[in-house]
Amino acid sequence: MTPTKVKIVEVGPRDGLQNEKNFVATETKVELVNRLSQAGLQNVESASFVSPKWVPQMADGAAVMEGIDRRHGTIYSVLTPNMRGFEAALQAHADEVVIFGAASEAFSQKNINCSIAESIARFEPVAKAAKEAGVRLRGSISCSLGCPYQGEVPVASVVDVVERMKALGCDEIDIADTIGVGTPTRTREVLAAASKVFPREHLSGHFHDTYGQAVANIYAALQEGIEIYHASVAGLGGCPYAKGATGNVATEDVVYLMNGLGIETGIDLDQLIEIGDFISRAIGKPSSSRAGRALLAKKRDGVTPCV
């Protein structure tokens, strides 16, 4: 059941940068997206059309989408929380729009002040408009493996939201471990259940590395036949529910894993390592990628990482 080829969705330019306190220059974001697509990333989450009042880092979404050099065959995705965001995404010629819900009622109430059912209902006009416009629609389910407020999230709750996303017409659905508490056994349990109500080949794993479990969870997901994974170059992003903890799993670490398993990604790891170094220097933070740091040291200083 383990796939021989996977698609990696790069979320660094959006999910990775959105919580940076210092504004990242539009030109830097554009270069980041361009370099990622040139390195072979098939899907790059490039911008977010949300209110700049709530996410000021993403205020230049339209400029980023206008400035990028579009690589044939690459899907450029944007986050769209409402119809206003969708219309902006359409004007920006986004290939895919992303809507989001939570598998945890507590998380939904705390974050957007409504129930899961109400949050999904809000996306109905966006989903309908996307289908009419021929734009890909992706749904992301937060807290699929645990919630900072209610703790454990029942598998049945995840399946329920998968079915709701399916009814909206989502082309892909992300099973997201928002706070990184998932473990391999739980990962397999949730994905096995989700794949009974939605095509396995269109499910994706979005794992955070807060507790150092992301790569292990990806390996577990591979055993369930999952072919799509999200990652962020240099491990960009953080976890607001665990102060100082890392967030998204690093793309370099995921590609290194896949290469070791003989699973095709179409991504040039050497280029990816340089991209991780580029964006880390640009934002003034060290890379969170273990593979990226080790391989960069080996490449530049001729130092072989310890075994």
Rank of each mutant, 00 (worst) to 15 (best):
G16I: 03
T251Q: 04
T187H: 01
P199Q: 11
K110C: 04
T187M: 15
R138Y: 10
V255M: 03
L32N: 12
A234G: 06
V233I: 15
F198K: 07
G225E: 10
L203H: 08
T251R: 00
L261M: 14
D209V: 05
P13K: 05
S280R: 05
V55H: 09
Q109V: 13
R300S: 08
S204M: 11
F86N: 06
L261D: 09
T246H: 07
C239Q: 09
I283C: 05
I116S: 03
P81W: 02
R71A: 12
R281N: 13
G247E: 04
I226V: 14
G73N: 10
G67D: 08
G16V: 05
V254N: 01
S140A: 15
P199T: 15
K5M: 08
P52C: 07
V11C: 02
P52E: 10
Q271M: 15
Y256N: 15
T80E: 05
V126M: 01
V158E: 00
H230W: 00
L41R: 02
F198N: 04
R281G: 10
N113E: 07
Y219K: 10
F100E: 03
T28I: 15
L257R: 02
E163L: 11
L145A: 11
N111D: 12
C306L: 13
A47F: 02
Q57S: 12
K243P: 07
S204P: 05
G205D: 13
D15T: 01
L296V: 10
S115K: 07
A103W: 03
Y211H: 14
S51L: 05
F107L: 09
V9T: 13
L90C: 03
D268T: 08
G180W: 13
P286I: 12
